[in-house]
Computed example of a mutant assay.
Amino acid sequence: MNSYPLLKQVHLTCAFISIGGFLIRGLLMVRASPWFRKRSLRLMVDANDSLLLAAAVVMVVLSDQYPFVVPWVTAKVMGLLAYVGLGLVAFRFGPTLSIRLTAWGAALVVAGYIVSVAILKDPRGFLTGVIP
């Protein structure tokens, strides 16, 4: 039985939930909502992101499309590292609200880039028309 289509659906669903959750958490941060710091929210985010990453790793192995071998997969991994770093600045380490908001916005742009790379299977992603 080929489990790749199911894994891909799990990955896509978790990615949608992850990006949507990131957007909502940023809005909660802006509103200084007490929900922003709720442990239950962080646990749900961590559980979803763990499932997202696990599905991605298994898909990479099943498809033999490894980072640093396949350029668009490498771009997704590099984008993910940037997204995580910006998320840490946005939600934990940003010293001021303006820095946190800038990091949050930049992380959303990076998330869009990662999605565009996955759709186009091109490391340039949505920059395809800009970068030759």
Rank of each mutant, 00 (worst) to 15 (best):
M1H: 00
M1C: 00
S3M: 08
Y4S: 10
Y4R: 12
Y4A: 13
L6Q: 04
L6H: 09
L6R: 06
L7M: 07
Q9L: 08
Q9S: 12
V10P: 00
H11S: 01
H11R: 00
T13D: 09
T13N: 06
C14K: 03
C14F: 12
C14M: 15
A15N: 06
I17M: 13
G20C: 04
F22K: 09
L23V: 13
I24P: 01
G26S: 07
L27Q: 09
L27K: 07
L27T: 02
V30Q: 14
R31C: 00
A32D: 15
S33P: 08
F36C: 05
R37A: 13
K38H: 15
K38P: 03
K38S: 12
S40R: 14
S40E: 13
L41C: 08
L41I: 15
M44W: 11
M44R: 12
M44D: 01
V45T: 13
D46F: 13
D46I: 11
N48W: 06
N48C: 14
N48L: 06
D49F: 14
D49M: 14
S50W: 10
L51P: 01
L51C: 09
L51E: 03
L52P: 10
L53M: 13
L53R: 00
A54M: 10
A54F: 09
A54E: 02
A56K: 00
A56R: 00
A56I: 01
V58N: 01
V61R: 08
L62D: 10
L62E: 13
S63F: 09
S63T: 15
S63N: 11
S63M: 11
D64V: 04
Q65T: 11
Q65R: 14
Q65F: 11
Y66C: 02
P67V: 02
P67T: 03
P67Q: 02
F68C: 02
V69Y: 10
V69A: 12
P71F: 02
W72A: 02
T74H: 09
T74D: 11
T74E: 11
K76H: 01
K76A: 02
V77D: 00
M78Y: 07
L80Q: 08
L81K: 03
A82G: 07
Y83F: 15
V84W: 13
G85D: 00
G85A: 05
G85Q: 04
L86P: 06
G87P: 10
G87N: 09
L88M: 14
V89Q: 03
V89T: 13
A90M: 12
F91E: 08
R92W: 15
F93D: 01
P95L: 05
P95K: 15
P95Y: 05
P95Q: 11
L97R: 15
S98E: 09
R100F: 07
L101V: 11
W104L: 08
W104S: 04
G105A: 12
G105W: 00
L108N: 05
L108C: 04
V109I: 15
V109H: 05
V110M: 05
A111C: 04
A111H: 03
Y113A: 04
V115L: 13
V117H: 08
I119V: 15
K121R: 14
D122T: 09
P123G: 05
P123E: 02
P123T: 08
R124Y: 02
G125A: 06
G125D: 00
L127E: 00
T128E: 00
G129N: 09
G129A: 10
V130Y: 12
V130L: 15
I131V: 14
I131N: 03
P132F: 06
P132V: 05
P132K: 09
